[in-house]
Design a protein around this nucleic acid. Structure first.
Lengths: 246, 246
DNA sequence: AATATTAGTGGCCTAATGCCACTAATATTA
DNA sequence: TAATATTAGTGGCATTAGGCCACTAATATT
């Protein structure tokens, strides 16, 4: 390409295919909680490369439909789960010469938290075989496509790390939940027990929940139901959860 | 493209230019400290688009030279500053239809911390006009190219946020430094004063520094010089710095 | 020798959390 | 109907990292 006098001329003559560019995609770890286990959604690849192997859901940016990167992630998420208002967070971007046999590739990684109860078991966009797998199992027993094991490991790490000082796990529960239910979620992700009183104080003092008014009943004392206060997306605590002192 | 029997066939027939892909690049905020101010490196663009306007340094991935994304960032950093062992951290990835007039574009953003003393004022790779600008000034007085104001704002935010609970600012100092010097760096980035005793306890108890043996002398009591312990890249404190209680 | 200046410490206060035993409310069971 | 089991929820003291501030220490300068 030669020099151009104005930006207008430059853009008119510009053709992206004159340059070597990497292949850029979006991948995501979609987490949910089921029976006291953290599970992640895997997809069996129906196309080459890595055909027939399990992978994290993802795909290419649709240059027409997607206005910003997050749209791509959101689109994929809805395709796979049908969840309308997920928690979505960008984790990191992986890029390199070796990670995809097609050549230099870049993938922007998101993680999503969805409530088990809000998942559409057969969403519209479902074309490939999918499967929910406990995260530890996905990491130890599955040889995922490309560098997806590494990517998943980082997503899990980011999640556990943020659980130490934020109220993220709320997004793994349906709109209304009891404090004990929330505590259980923290315990599952952290992998250790949490002291009841400390936990309740921590959450309640943060002033991010409101009572829904209803109660959860069972074969014992009923529990208050809470929901996230309007406008509270996420909360950062001044200290990390400390766990048992022993 | 049609169906292929094997991955080998698939790859042989694969051509990235059959698809519409975004333009992918790397941009970075390189921070240093000078005269009690946090400064960022800006580059005057010598090429279209946005020719002659100030921007964060960055560029395209060199599919031949760069093996992974971080290589691109590292290459750019050395080109601009000549610093050999910077602190480099991926911040986020921006992507969208509108941010670059050439079309859908993605940029992976890094921030780097370098010691003022270790900067090569005229590094080999220097081709464009560059300038160190106080960050607040860059954000308020400069209309940077593309969405670089927004990017810089996020980098600054990430930096200040991490200073609350990590020992990051160490990387803005040369190898040996006094505790008071380090405290000053924290104060500059946080924008408020830090209590001396609390600060020293926090840093020293973290067990990440070792005495170099030497002292910094001046017209008053000499101060011990410290350096980062080998193998300590970064440290996370269990609590955030609290600042004045008033 | 006195003074100014910055380095570094002792010791008490505060706040968020850990810990654990207690009370409360419900369904179930005898 | 009363006792029991079970889970919800609280009271209150201990612990720990950090805030606060006054003190001592070591040097160059006056």
């Amino acid at each position: 390409m030669q020099d151009h006098a104005s930006e207008k001329d430059f853009l008119a003559a510009y053709n992206i295919h004159d340059y070597e560019v990497p292949l850029t995609s979006v991948d995501m770890a979609i987490f949910k909680l089921r029976e006291q286990q953290l599970e992640v959604l895997l997809v069996k690849r129906s196309q080459h490369p890595a055909k027939d192997t399990w992978a994290l859901p993802g795909g290419f940016i649709d240059l027409k439909k997607d206005n910003v990167l997050e749209d791509t992630a959101h689109r994929k998420l809805v395709e796979k789960t049908g969840v309308k208002s997920p928690y979505l967070e960008q984790v990191a971007t992986f890029g390199g010469k070796q990670r995809d046999p097609r050549g230099w590739s870049v993938t922007v990684v998101y993680f999503a938290l969805v409530a088990h109860e809000e998942i559409d078991v057969d969403p519209k966009g479902a074309k490939e075989e999918t499967r929910w797998v406990p995260v530890s199992e996905a990491l130890s027993d599955y040889k995922l496509a490309f560098d997806h094991n590494e990517i998943l490991r980082l997503c899990r790490e980011r999640l556990t790390s943020k659980v130490q000082y934020t109220a993220l796990p709320i997004h793994l529960l349906p709109e209304e939940f009891t404090l004990t239910e929330l505590q259980k979620v923290f315990e599952v992700i952290l992998g250790n027990e949490v002291e009841k009183k400390s936990f309740r104080r921590r959450i309640l003092d943060a002033d991010i929940l409101e009572e829904s008014g209803a109660m959860r009943t069972g074969s014992n004392r009923p529990a208050k139901l809470y929901r996230l206060k309007r406008g509270v997306e996420n909360h950062f605590f001044p200290r990390t959860i400390e766990g048992p002192r022993s």
